[in-house]
């Protein structure tokens, strides 16, 4: 009763603007503060080379986190992205090193192989968890093992190497000091942002995250939307695999262990609610940058590895507390 009284008079509007401040400006401010801190306390942080480094280093996590945003927005989680990335990389590595193809064909084949592998894993995650209404946490935990095992099986646990030169060059190419692979990631962010904000599909994903039943009763095929969200997540894992291969010029079946947690961290720090329905991919971009800046800056100021890990953990906890207050402001 109280909430309704409050609501009728614009209290809610204020709460909403406060929420959006917390949502976006808050993360942006935190990022600015970090950048300022590292600029003052380290000599190399704010140099062109270092910024290039950071952008390169966050690329894979950002790509995975974009897909993860879709899944978390519908109230799911995908723990398998790290393993799926490794699996996709191994399949693509096998494809790209097949004899009898020119470099262009081999690269095209690898891109198709990686994305298709990711998509298939995503479809599996989506169909199983949506059809039987099972918690995606469990299903994707299964996929984490399936994909990792498959990666080891396909590669015989060997690192695959010797890729076409053009492919390796793509991984280290720059445009005005901006890594091309980061531009790829940024394009994915923009496409995701557009899809989530301007399309019926995006609107309904938010709707599903908030109240799946209401969307179902409005006649929408919720099942397929959920499958699509997981498929997108698998697709981005495939793209991440291509970037991984291009950057490091190898396909390792043990690549990407723990990457899922970094991707989830980027999404959560970016202000997307783990319970779904609320958040944005722009926040995810900022979240990934914060993680990258922390990892880079803390090395530059000479902090030990263990302290680095602790601080990253503290940031995640802090982000979740912030999320709690965001949720409270929306509820009021």
């Amino acid at each position: 009763m109280t909430t309704q009284t409050l609501a009728e008079t614009g209290q809610v509007k204020r709460a909403i603007s406060l929420r959006s401040v917390l949502n976006n400006a808050g993360i942006g401010l935190a990022l600015l503060a970090l950048i300022l801190f590292f600029s003052v306390f380290t000599e190399h942080f704010l140099t062109a080379n270092n910024i290039t480094n950071i952008l390169t280093q966050i690329t894979i996590n950002l790509i995975l986190a974009v897909g993860m945003t879709f899944v978390i927005l519908i109230g799911g989680i995908d723990l398998s992205v790290g393993s799926v990335m490794a699996f996709a990389a191994v399949v693509a590595g096998k494809a790209i090193t097949l004899p009898g193809f020119g470099p262009a064909e081999a690269i095209a084949l690898a891109v198709v192989a990686a994305t298709m592998t990711g998509v298939l894993c995503g479809v599996f995650n989506g169909v199983i968890s949506a059809y039987w209404a099972l918690p995606s946490f469990i299903i994707t935990l299964g996929m984490l093992n399936i994909a990792r095992g498959a990666a080891l099986q396909v590669s015989d646990a060997q690192t695959i190497y010797a890729f076409p030169i053009a492919f390796e060059e793509f991984g280290s190419a720059m445009i005005y000091g901006v890594p091309v692979v980061f531009i790829v990631a940024l394009l994915l962010v923009l496409v995701a942002w557009f899809v989530l904000n301007y399309t019926v599909f995006g609107r309904l994903l938010y709707g599903i995250g908030n109240n799946e039943e209401a969307v179902r009763l409005a006649g929408h095929p919720v099942f397929w939307y959920k499958v699509a969200a997981f498929t997108i997540c698998g697709f981005t894992a495939g793209i991440a695999a291509i970037v991984y291969m291009a950057r490091l010029n190898i396909s390792s079946p043990i690549a990407g262990i723990g990457f899922e947690l970094n991707a989830i961290a980027a999404v959560i720090i970016g202000g997307t609610s783990l319970s779904g329905g609320r958040g944005s991919v722009i926040g995810t971009l900022l979240g990934a940058i914060i993680i990258g800046v922390l990892a880079n800056g803390l090395i530059l100021i000479g902090l030990s590895d263990f302290m680095r890990q602790m601080i990253t953990g503290i940031v995640i906890v802090f982000a979740v507390i912030l999320d709690h207050y965001r949720a409270k402001y929306t509820a009021k």
Partner: peptide, 15 residues
């Protein structure tokens, strides 16, 4: 890990 070594070393090189 390859990927992590890549990042960690890039940062060391900057420092």
């Amino acid at each position: 890990e390859t990927e992590e070594a890549n990042s960690v070393f890039s940062n060391m090189l900057t420092a």
